[in-house]
Amino acid sequence: MTENHSASQPQTQRHRVEGPQKHIVVFVLSMVLTIIAFAAVAAGKVNKLFVIFLLLGMAIVQAFAQMAFWMHMKDRGHFFPIIGIVGGVFVVIMLVALALLWTWW
């Protein structure tokens, strides 16, 4: 644990007024990924395994973008939020691996 700032100190943050541009970019990205995902399934003729990995990849990219920008996880002072989500995701990976392995077995 390298984190050693004293948390009881008020965080002095510089005032930056963010414009909406970044968030709109994330929105457009999310929309595009969503449309591609639905289109890939609606087309229905593509390789099944490829589509599944494409869908999962796009979902992860979209989720990542939304969490980084909309939920401000890219901002400073988000060490523990990241720990929280990463820890949760770690457990989820175990769980999902379990579900998949066990239904294949």
């Binding site: 644990m1 984190e3 004293s6 948390a7 009881s8 523990f80």
Partner: peptide
């Protein structure tokens, strides 16, 4: 308790 330990440590009380 997680939030307490992260946010309420006295000045100088680093994690280590």
């Amino acid at each position: 308790f997680m939030a307490t330990i992260i946010n309420l440590r006295a000045p100088g009380m680093t994690f280590m």
